[in-house]
């Protein structure tokens, strides 16, 4: 396992990269940014993902698929900040956490309802719900947390 400081630095680079650009950096980019070799960067990425198991790499690759609260792979949870829809949330629950990545900004989440396809919209600012449409929007956990939860890519 890599040292904690290096893992922290990589974690922050990934999260900051997602926030700034809407996509997660690739391990070679991360390696360069951290001043380590490419292969060390790749191994370090795997260490970071093991330490942050609520995210995941695309199976059998070194590509970041999910790094909650955001997702590198598009989901139905589209996140808009300052009028730009660059981001995706990992899931509907994590979507309510994206607000903490954009302090002082209104963060809008748009998703189609999986039953009818009609829109679900939530706007948050610094953790507070600013707008909800329709007013009856609910969160739903289809599999329990822990051992009974589904496989991560199918949350």
């Amino acid at each position: 396992m890599a040292d904690a400081l290096l893992m922290d630095r990589m974690f922050q680079r990934i999260m900051r990269g997602l926030v700034d650009t809407g996509r997660a950096p690739q391990y070679a980019e991360l390696a360069r940014a951290l001043g380590v070799g490419i292969e060390q960067g790749r191994l370090l990425l795997h260490d970071v993902m093991r330490a942050y198991p609520i995210g995941w790499l695309h199976p059998e690759t070194d590509y970041i698929a999910s790094f909650p609260p955001l997702n590198n792979l598009p989901t139905q949870y589209r996140v808009t900040v300052r009028g730009e829809q660059r981001w995706f949330a990992q899931c509907g629950f994590e979507a309510t956490s994206a607000t903490w990545l954009f302090p002082g900004e209104t963060v809008r989440v748009d998703a189609p309802c999986l039953d009818c396809g009609d829109p679900v919209t939530v706007e948050m600012r610094d953790g507070r719900i600013a707008w909800v449409d329709p007013p009856g929007v609910v969160g739903h956990l289809n599999y329990g947390f822990g051992p009974s939860r589904g496989r991560p890519p199918f949350l």
Binding site: C116, D118, G136, V137, N142
Partner: peptide, 19 residues
């Protein structure tokens, strides 16, 4: 872990688990 327009919408979702 999803957002639905209401509980009734979630219950109509084909993947809804009874549990």
């Amino acid at each position: 872990m999803n957002l639905f327009r209401s509980e009734e919408h979630a219950r109509r979702w084909p993947a809804f688990q009874a549990r």
